[in-house]
Amino acid sequence: MSGDGPSSAAAMQGGGFYNRNSALQAANLGSALPLLIEAARDIPADEAMIGIADYGASQGRNSMVPVASAIDALRPRIGPDRPIVVSHIDLPSNDFTSLFTVLDADPASYLAGRANVYPVAIGRSHFGQVLPGGSVDLGWSSNALHWMSRNPCPVPDHGWGVFSADAAVRDAIDAQLDADWTNFLQARAREMRAGGRLICQFMGRGPESHGFEWMANAFWQSWVDAADAGLMTHAELGRIAAPSAGRSVAQIEAPFRDGRSGRLRLVDLAVVQAPDPYWAAFEQSGDAAQLGRVWADMMRAANGPSFAAALDAGRDRDAVLDAVTRRLAARIAADPQQNRSFNVIMMIEAVD
């Protein structure tokens, strides 16, 4: 990876590690489930086959409850025999093996006890069209749309450009967020049937602060500590940047206001404080070491691949990730805090 150019997004850590360490993401998506169930009850659903699209599926565990809920809301309307095709979309590097293992063997699989449901996987970026035009009745995306298609510029002073002290870096991040959001919406406008609904949940930006500062700073400082300890060079550290950031309400609404969303209409939008299931468990147990471990493993699962992609070829990335994870766990245990971040919850409709 060059320090001069943008870097692409990386998939979550594979081998089922993300599935095992994504309780925070599972808690986040719960706030959008009522909208998904409402949408499943309201869409026209008059085609011979129903298409459900799961944009940003990752390793699948956090798709099981939402897709099952949508199917169960649809079945009373469409009957038991109508086929439902569920398309799981993520990057080509995604661990689709873990997704299909969950579908096949996990008791929570939406296939369990549900007939005429056909899952497929698509290894492509959802910032372009990935499904045939007019084939999606119901779309779902959770914990995915704060990830950008790429980093637009180097970020030498932080692991996230949105937290850089350089205003030009922050402006470049906002421009990339806008371009990606427009591309995502225009692709969905082509894919969705008239009357179809798309439910999205992702990290947003608060009215007074971005949110997630505590954990982002703790993770970045753990990488700085590892570089200071000689586990990587400071040149490698300077190339690290996770391509993710929250959007404000104004940034989310902009394409709908100026016509860039095509035939998509914004039905519902809310930005709420995100849950912190790790802190709730800590309040019960008082176990700061456990709080550190679960946060560190989650951050490694979600952000470790993007950070580690900046390391030199030949560098033992697992060893670096192990060291950073230990440092982060210790840092959190020494100063336990409740995470403060924001969730976007929204419903979009395709119109004629």
Rank of each mutant, 00 (worst) to 15 (best):
D335C: 08
G204V: 10
M203G: 13
S69Y: 02
D4R: 06
I348M: 06
A289F: 02
R170K: 13
C200F: 12
M192E: 10
W220V: 02
Q201S: 14
Q273H: 11
M346A: 15
A73I: 04
L131T: 07
V67N: 05
D104T: 14
S63V: 04
L35R: 10
S285C: 05
R170H: 06
L35K: 05
A23H: 06
A309P: 02
M347F: 00
Y18G: 02
C153D: 00
L231K: 13
A73C: 07
A250Y: 13
F256G: 10
G286V: 08
P107M: 01
H146Y: 04
R326Q: 13
I52E: 08
P44C: 00
E213W: 10
M347K: 11
A288N: 06
A288H: 05
G51E: 06
D180H: 11
R150G: 01
M215N: 03
A175L: 12
Q25P: 07
I345F: 02
L177M: 15
D178T: 15
R260W: 08
G56C: 05
L35A: 09
D174L: 14
R150E: 07
V136G: 09
F17G: 01
N62F: 10
A235L: 07
I348T: 03
R193N: 08
A70P: 11
A330C: 05
R239V: 01
Y110E: 06
V155G: 02
V324G: 00
R239H: 00
S98A: 15
L29V: 05
S63F: 06
A288S: 12
G246H: 05
G113P: 13
A242Q: 00
P336R: 11
G113Q: 13
A112Y: 07
S7G: 08
R331T: 14
A302F: 04
L177S: 14
M49N: 07
R257A: 15
S141M: 09
A227H: 10
L264M: 13
W295T: 07
Y55I: 15
M232T: 01
F184S: 11
L74Q: 06
N183L: 12
W220I: 00
V85A: 12
A329W: 05
G196I: 09
I173H: 02
A175P: 03
G286H: 06
D258N: 15
A250T: 15
R114M: 08
D178C: 14
P119A: 13
S109T: 13
R77E: 04
R193F: 02
L198R: 10
G292Y: 05
S341V: 00
A334M: 01
S135Y: 12
A115P: 12
S285K: 08
R263E: 04
P152E: 06
P255A: 12
A187K: 09
Q273V: 14
L74S: 09
S109A: 12
I240T: 01
L266F: 11
A226R: 08
S98L: 03
A115G: 15
G51Q: 01
S261R: 10
P152G: 02
A57F: 03
A241W: 01
A310S: 02
A26C: 11
G134Q: 01
S125E: 01
A333D: 03
D228P: 09
I78G: 08
A57Q: 04
A121S: 14
I199K: 03
R300H: 03
A73S: 05
F212G: 00
H210P: 01
